[in-house]
């Protein structure tokens, strides 16, 4: 460089060259624009809004209806076959986190790579002293942080509060955090999958479509191959039946999880997706 001696050169970081600068840029997009607020509010409305509807509004409406019909005090008391309200709420929270928030993660993730490839900003950034792995990993790191704070921690805290104040149940904090960790692992799985697809194909439809198929088509896949339950993230947040509660639900209730294989497999898939994404991105011609 025809250098100016008063400026300090960025030290060499090998395969992570440029990671710090890129991550700062991605973090600014999350935290210095309204994105963090929008994401928090959207999922507050969709996930905790649904939770509030189920554990606060619906019982009150049912109680009022029952009182109108029978003059009895509580509709809930009149429906002994239904699961306790706190358990229903907990299941709603984890199921919606694994479904609705996962969709949000897919939409965020597809913008991260394929949009930059298609608009040409990736080619511009990569013409600087930046390693391709740093480019991808910065997307993963910044989005993983944004998702953790706005979609997992914020929503989990509100859900915990709602469940406590509406049903009086104080779930063990450690177990509830464990359940949130499984939600986060599920979301990381979809983020990594979307990033990987963004490096493999040129169609935004395909990048969004395949993860959405996995999110919403789990019953179809399980009907064809039930063993997939053990190696896919569905068991982490989805309650399949009373006998097969979500792992997150079990943990949040302070009960032991007997089979960790789905969580381990989800973590491994996530690592594999990231590895494939880096491998493919290194070979991309811009």
């Amino acid at each position: 460089m025809a250098s100016n001696s008063s400026l300090q050169a960025v030290p060499e970081r090998g395969w992570l060259q440029g990671f710090g600068n890129l991550t700062r840029k991605e973090n600014r997009r999350w935290w210095r624009t309204g994105q963090w607020l929008w994401q928090t509010l959207i999922w507050l409305a969709l996930v905790n809004g649904m939770l509030a509807l189920v554990i606060i509004v619906a019982p009150q409406a049912e109680a009022a209806e029952a009182q109108r019909r029978t003059g009895e005090v509580s509709a809930v008391e009149g429906l002994p076959d239904q699961p306790p309200l706190d358990q229903t709420g907990l299941m709603i929270y984890f199921t919606f986190s694994g479904l609705a928030i996962a969709v949000g993660v897919v939409i965020l993730g597809q913008e991260a790579v394929i949009l930059e490839r298609q608009t040409g900003t990736a080619a511009w950034v990569l013409s600087k002293p930046v390693s391709r792995s740093a480019f991808l990993l910065s997307k993963l790191a910044a989005n993983a942080l944004g998702i953790l704070v706005t979609m997992v921690l914020a929503q989990g805290a509100v859900a915990y509060g709602l469940l406590y104040f509406a049903t009086g149940t104080a779930y063990p904090v450690g177990g509830f955090l464990g359940g949130m960790a499984l939600v986060y692992l599920t979301l990381l799985f979809y983020l990594a999958l979307t990033l990987m697809l963004g490096t493999l194909v040129n169609s935004r439809g395909a990048v969004i479509g395949l993860p959405l198929l996995l999110i919403f088509g789990y019953q179809l896949f399980l009907g064809l191959a039930p063993w997939l339950m053990a190696v896919m993230p569905w068991a982490l947040t989805m309650t399949m039946s009373e006998a097969q509660p979500a792992m997150a639900l079990t943990l949040a209730q302070g009960q032991p999880v007997t089979d960790w294989l789905p969580a381990i497999a989800t973590a491994l898939w996530t690592v594999v997706f990231v590895g494939v994404a880096v491998w493919r991105f290194e070979r991309e011609d811009f």
């Binding site: 400026l7 300090q8 050169a9 960025v10 700062r24 840029k25 002293p129």
Partner: peptide, 9 residues
């Protein structure tokens, strides 16, 4: 852009 080359001041 400068952030890829210079760390400061």
């Amino acid at each position: 852009t400068a952030g890829f080359f210079f760390s400061g001041p």
